[in-house]
Write a protein that binds this DNA or RNA. Structure first.
Lengths: 361, 361
DNA sequence: CTGAAAGCGCTAACAT
DNA sequence: ATGTTAGCGCTTTCAG
């Protein structure tokens, strides 16, 4: 199994290898380019050329090298290669929460896009801990050629400082003003505006907002829009409830939602909306009969709940794949391009309906 | 932004650097240990010792080194380090489908467990393509110290051959008979047995099985149990329907399910079950009034569907974290331990109920 | 077309 | 306690 410390017969006996195996089992240690070269009777340079498909090698030699490599089960060391080439062909992604479907899609999109270009993906999760982010980012960046930071929760100043240490960098759902770090984001404000308009249009006058992680920029965006809308319209009452980002959070808050007397709830995201939906169901409150409810993200489940969820759809996969394009560009020394804000699309399904006066419970 | 090709003033002018900058901007090229050593007026060995917290360095020197490192914004190259140390402190995970919540949890569990031990995670997705798996595995293994293969779809012989090339290796939901490769799996057969017993106990006599990816071992396990149970009990009729593993698959098959006349459906997993649930709902078929339905996995959503889903719960996160323990052991040259099969736990919720004669539609 | 040799940036004997 | 030096395994000039 662990053949790490196995021997390599070399003329030079002064090598400082820690532990040397004496005799015994056949040497299963990793074949190196030197051993292949030796077996094929060529120089290491030639082996290298063959392995990298250089066309300037005599077919006969190439064949011999290939056979030798095969025989030794030769596997070029990516680490040595990276050191020599100065690049790792790996990029990193840092997300606050791997359990969030949104980030899962980003992960997928990024992984696939990078893979098509022969790059691998390193992932790390900060667990919604802003302190961790910078450490993880720096650590990850040391092993890779570029970094994607998804919805970092750290404060602006810190992010700005970090951005210089870890370039090439692409930001998701976060911008650094006056910087050239490419940023891809979802225009949450626009999405919320559509949701509010939809709800107001249905006659709702009292909304509850179930807020997400306080440190999250998307949450602040949503809140700002909601408050502005409410402030500018005397007939629009807004209640804010600290909630979270998970089913459990949404489920646990159902009772409090009912207590507000509101006729519609704007949930931080689809997961929270589901939780609340389920909670209301258990409390016997009909949706949308008595309370309407909206989510955000349009995760796959949203179509399949009962009732199906009205929500704002966002291009989750595209965030990942576009992040790759930007990063790839930066990695070649090209500019990262203009920032973009994806505009969510309102998907009206059956969890929202006309406002009806709430009966007291 | 891209300071890749920046210069390093060195005495030695014979270096084969591709592009050299002449004069101008301050040198933002990555600081190396040599530069830090120079600035601090010590040897590279000392810098190395300081960076790695060796206690045998004079405090005064250590301080000087630290200051120099700070000043140069020195970031030790993990690549060079890996090459010198012979390890990367990285492990890889290959999954068939990143969209599957089951694998997402494995990913999380593994990532967190490995992170606690100072290791990073490389992820790759084979997109349910068995050919890809081996390639990805080998590629990934070259950049990391160990590998976790989650539910590989490749044939036994290939897997066996691969297992030797990529050790240390831990397998999830797959075993190689007579090999020492540690394997962690879910006892799907046992889970299905419980589900069948539950359904039979409710009086159901005709079940439909919505099958998952044909190449998947878990799917074969489920099928084997179902067929055996049906074969051994004349009063138990089984219908098999090719389905898939996603919502969409489950949703699309609802009509076919109704057409079978069965009173209960055993879905490949929770996602399929949801899809079907939703499809039946649209067709106006009451669940569990007319048709009962079971899932598998107990993903977080399962509690929150209407009706909540009867399913078999499996320790998804634990698969990931235990995979780490095994891999970590192997990486230290210790044995990988006994294989384990996690026994699913039947969670009875409201999507299953007593069998009632189906009315014809 | 092939080989020799100098690196890539870091670590760890070994010697001082 | 610190420095010297020989690697880790690969790539890439440069000569031939």
């Amino acid at each position: 199994m662990s053949s790490e410390t196995a021997d390599r017969e070399r003329g030079d006996e002064t090598r400082p290898r820690p532990a040397r195996r004496r005799g015994g089992r056949p040497d299963h240690s990793k074949a190196t380019i030197a051993r292949v070269a030796e077996l094929a009777g060529v120089s290491r340079a030639t082996v290298s050329r063959v392995m990298n498909g250089s066309p300037t090698v005599a077919p006969e030699l190439a064949e011999r090298v290939r056979t030798a490599a095969e025989a030794l089960n030769y596997e070029p060391s990516q680490v040595a290669r990276s050191l020599a080439l100065g690049r790792t062909s790996t990029v990193s992604l840092i997300v606050p929460d791997l359990a969030n479907p949104m980030f899962q899609d980003v992960l997928r999109g990024l992984s696939n896009a990078a893979g098509r270009e022969g790059h691998r993906l390193l992932v790390a999760e900060s667990n919604e801990n802003p302190e961790e982010e910078a450490i993880l980012a720096i650590e990850a960046r040391r092993r890779s050629d570029g970094l994607v930071l998804a919805s970092p929760r750290m404060p602006e100043a810190e992010l700005r400082a970090l951005s210089e240490r870890v370039a090439p960098l692409v930001l998701l759902n976060r911008e650094i003003l006056g910087s050239t770090v490419p940023s891809l984001s979802v225009d949450y404000a626009a999405g919320i505006r559509e949701i509010v308009a939809h709800l107001l249009g249905l006659g709702h006058r009292h909304l509850v907002y179930l807020s997400g992680p306080a440190a999250s920029a998307p949450n602040r965006d949503r809140l700002a829009v909601l408050r502005a809308a409410s402030a500018g319209d005397p007939g629009f009452e807004l209640t804010e409830l600290e909630c979270g980002a998970t089913f459990e959070d949404g489920h646990a808050i159902a009772h409090a939602v009912v207590a507000t007397g509101a006729t519609a709830v704007v949930a931080y995201n689809d997961m929270v909306a589901f939780g609340t939906l389920s909670g209301l169901h258990e409390l016997g409150v009909p949706v949308p009969g008595e309370i309407s409810i909206t989510g955000f993200d349009d995760i796959p489940f949203a179509r399949y709940t009962t009732p199906p969820l009205t929500t704002a759809s966002i291009p989750k996969n595209e965030l990942g794949s576009q992040a790759w394009s930007r990063l790839w560009a930066l990695m070649q020394g090209e500019p990262g391009g203009y920032n973009v804000r994806f505009q969510p699309r309102l998907i009206v399904r059956e969890s929202t309906g006309p406002a009806r006066p709430r009966r007291t419970r």
